[in-house]
Design a protein around this nucleic acid. Sequence first.
DNA 1: TTCCAAGCATAAGTAACTTAGGTATATCTA
DNA 2: TAGATATACCTAAGTTACTTATGCTTGGAA
Lengths: 113, 113
Amino acid sequence: MSPRDQIRKGSTDFVVLSLLVKRPMYGYEISQQLGQRSGGYFEMKEGLLYPALHHMQEKGWLTTEWRKVEGRRRKYYALTKMGLEVLDQQAAEWKTFLEKLDGLLQANDVWTG
Amino acid sequence: MSPRDQIRKGSTDFVVLSLLVKRPMYGYEISQQLGQRSGGYFEMKEGLLYPALHHMQEKGWLTTEWRKVEGRRRKYYALTKMGLEVLDQQAAEWKTFLEKLDGLLQANDVWTG
DNA sequence: TTCCAAGCATAAGTAACTTAGGTATATCTA
DNA sequence: TAGATATACCTAAGTTACTTATGCTTGGAA
C-alpha cells in the first residue's frame, strides 16, 4: 500500500468539505490531518489544496477568518450552509457512483480477480 | 438519481478496462454497454472514449483489430496481458482508496448525514 | 430519397492536477 | 547566534483529463 502522489482525481472538494464538518480548519492543518487520518495514504499538496479552498470560498461553500494563534497567522475555513448541502449532495453522488461501479466490476469479476 | 454528464473523473480507464475482461468490444459498443449495465447512469461520450482507447492502445494495454460485421466496419479492442495487470492494479488501488475514504467519512459522519 | 442509427474520429475550450517555486515567522539545535 | 526545520500562506507554468461541438461514412427504415 504505497501512498498516492496526491489524492485521487475528482475527490478533492469532497474530501476537504468532509474534513470541515466537525470544525473549521486552516489549510496547513487540513493537509496534515488528511495524511494522519489516512495513515499517510492521502497526500494533498499545497498546489492543489489552496486553489481548491479558494474556489470553494468563491462559490460560497466556505467562509474564511484570519486568526492569530501562538504567534502565527492562520486562515481558518468553515463550512457554510450551502457548503454542507453540497457535501451531502456529493456524498449521495459518490454513493450512487460506487454502487454502479461495483455492479459493473462484479459482473466482470474484477474485484475478485 | 439523475445521470451524470459523463463518467466520474479519474475512473475512465478503469471502467473501460473492466468491460473488456470478458471479451473484446468496439468503441460504440462500449459506450452502449456502459449505459445499459448501469441503468443509464454512466454515460461516456465519444470525445472522452475514443481518445482514452487510443492512449491505452499506445501504452500497450489494448490491441485493436478491424472487423467487418453486418456490412459495418468495427474496431475491436482487446485486453493485453499488460492491460489485465494494469486493471488488477487499478482495482487494488481503488479498493484501498475507498477504504481510506470510508474511514475519513465515517469519522466525520458524512455518510449518515 | 431522406432521415436516423451505427460507427469512427478530431479539435477547441475548460477544469483539474503536478511540479516547482516564492515569502515570512517561530522554534529547535549545533 | 546562525542555520536548519516546521509552520503557514500563496502563485505560476505545464500537463492531463474532461466537455462540447463537429465531421465523415455506411446501412436500413419510412
